[in-house]
Structures are given as C-alpha cells and as structure tokens.
Nucleic acid binder design. Sequence first.
DNA 1: TCTGTTTTTCCATTATTTGAGAAAAAATCC
DNA 2: GGATTTTTTCTCAAATAATGGAAAAACAGA
Lengths: 182, 182
Amino acid sequence: MAKLNERLADRLKQLRLERGLPLQELADLSGVSRSTLSRIENGDVSPTADTLSALSAAYHMTISQLLAPVEVPFQPLVRHGEQSEWQDPENGFARRVVSPPSGGLSAEVIRCTLEPYQIIAYAGPSRPGHEHHLVMLEGALTVTLGDEMHPLQAGDCLRYQLYGPSRFQTGVDPATYLMVLV
Amino acid sequence: MAKLNERLADRLKQLRLERGLPLQELADLSGVSRSTLSRIENGDVSPTADTLSALSAAYHMTISQLLAPVEVPFQPLVRHGEQSEWQDPENGFARRVVSPPSGGLSAEVIRCTLEPYQIIAYAGPSRPGHEHHLVMLEGALTVTLGDEMHPLQAGDCLRYQLYGPSRFQTGVDPATYLMVLV
DNA sequence: TCTGTTTTTCCATTATTTGAGAAAAAATCC
DNA sequence: GGATTTTTTCTCAAATAATGGAAAAACAGA
C-alpha cells in the first residue's frame, strides 16, 4: 500500500515536468500549496480525494486518468478461493469475480448464476458503450437489449455494446454464464 | 470540490449495500476501521489515496473504476480561453486541450502544433489500444506507427489504435492537427 | 412490546495531511 | 567563481483524517 504513494509521486512529478511547470505555478493552477505538492511528489504523504480532484483538474484530466497508470499491477493467477462473490438474496442472483479488473488489464470476467423464474433489469449501464461478451455455460437465459430479445442456450455467446436498458430473464431453468466486460 | 466527497460517499455506500456487507465486515476486508468507513460514507471526510486503494481492493475494483461514476460531470462548452495549453520549448511542440476529458465522456480532443523540422518520438502509449483520430488542419506531417509511414497533408485523417512506438515528424512546413483520443 | 443482537453513529485520542513562510539547493547569469 | 534568481525542501502550527471504544439506533425473534 505504501507503494501506491511512490508510484503516484512519480506519475505526478512526470506530469508536471512534462509541462515544464514549477511547483509554484501548479500550486496556483490547482489551489494546492507548494509544500504539499512537494511532499506528494516525494511520496511521503498520501493525498486526499479532494487534493487528487484538484490536481486532476489542473492537468485537465479525470481522476481516473490520473490514477490509471498508477494502479496496482495485476496478478496473473486468481485462484477460486480468492475470487470474491456476492449474492442478492432477493432474486438469487450470484456474481463471482473470476478475473477481477486490474491496472494494465482492460477486461474483466464475471461468472453469474441466476435462479429460475427471475428477472434482472438495469435502467442503463454505469459506463455506456462497454463491450460485453456473454458466454452461456448452463441452462437458458433471455437477454433483452433495448427492444431486441435474445433467447440463449448453453454454448451460445452474445456480444454487444450497452447504451440503454437491459434485462436478464430466466424461465424453468436456472442460468449460469460468463460475462466478459471490456 | 466539496461535492466530490458526497458523491463518493453515495457511491461507496451503494457498493457496500449492493453486496449486503455491514461496516464491520468491510472493515475486516479492507483494513479500514468501521468508524472511518462510516464517516467516509457520510461524506464528512475525504479519504486518502491509500484508503481509496484499500477500499477498491476490498471491492475487487481498480481505483479508477471506483471513482469513474463519481468524477465531475463534463461541461458542454469549453471556450477558447478556458482551454489549457502547454508547450515544449525544446522542440516547439504545442498542445491545446480543446475538449478536456471528463467524467461521462469517453473521448477527448487535443489541438497540436509542431514546428518545421521536428521529430517527436514516443516509445509506447500510456494506455495501449487507445483509438486515435488524427485530423490534419494545416501543413504537412509524417506519422510513423510501428514501421508504417504515413505522409499527411491538410484535410487528411489518420485513424489507428496504438500499441507500439510512434513518431511525428515535420519537414519544411509546420503542422497543425487535431487529435481525437477515445 | 420486550429482549438480545446487530449495525451505525458519536466521541476522545492519535496520527497524517495541509498551508505559509524560512532555509536549503539548484540553476542562471555575468 | 561568485552573486542573483529560481526552484525545491524543510519546519512548525493548524486543520483534517484515522482509530478504538462507548452510546445510540435499527432489527429480529419471541
């Protein structure tokens, strides 16, 4: 965890030097004091979310873009026991993060299980335009994207980019599928 | 700037409730104390980068993914005077952020000016696979992607996804072009 | 409604981060 | 090389965040 500060420090110093800015000027731009900037860039403090926000604004970036290169690099092997799972008791919808998102990776894989006679409806995606690859493993599932219905069987693969509402519906059979999000 | 805390607070509380986690359990998972979690989720403190890192790890997310929905929403109009510009005095390479990246937008636009007889070489992209659209406005420019050379004139448009090194080179004429990054 | 339990909030203490200015270091110019 | 300017780092006080424990609130089962 201490590593993050150092990586963030390097990142921020690089950004500033690329632009040929002295600390004072960045301080004026961001509203964060010289001294604080120095300590952040030396990695001896961990900036608050507010400070990060101010800095990303000064660089005309989103916080995400500021932090993306700094994120902890991915571990290649994620054993079954390490995978986090959560479940909605209401509708028996279980999600297991098979390949958790990590810095340096642009895709993640989630294994989902939906019990019979259930409907999951989403008003819209959190990040529009995301690329989805749905691989049916077992059972049957009907996916509705916009007004297009797609009845899926084990072995089928549905690919789409999500911009509007979506709906996942099971019938007699439960459904198990893999979601690849890019 | 105070807004960020509240939005972040809501985001974090939502994440936890979605998973049906009590504060105690999240505290165990993340190593961040119950009380701190409560205050963060109430928006009365701004978590440090380290704390954010711990939380994103507990949720099996990157910090970027944690923050993406929280970022300040984009302003539709960016006037010329508000656009930030920086310049490398070494090689007369000027970049002006015409459409700065913002939460909710997946593209940004940068206006670049390169003086005659200059070479800009990049070892590799910061985020591989980024989609680039280069629109030549004035002058001439030779862009080398991998081992493919592309001589460009005003009006030309070069599109590519960047994975390896790239090179931008001017001859007698200076070059002015727009970069759309997706 | 009353317990007993779980979950959340509050409080006091400790540890960090921040800001302003002084000191040190580095760069620039004669 | 020495003086001046610029830039960075350091110091101290104030503000803010983090922790652990206690009180309050919410919840569930009788």
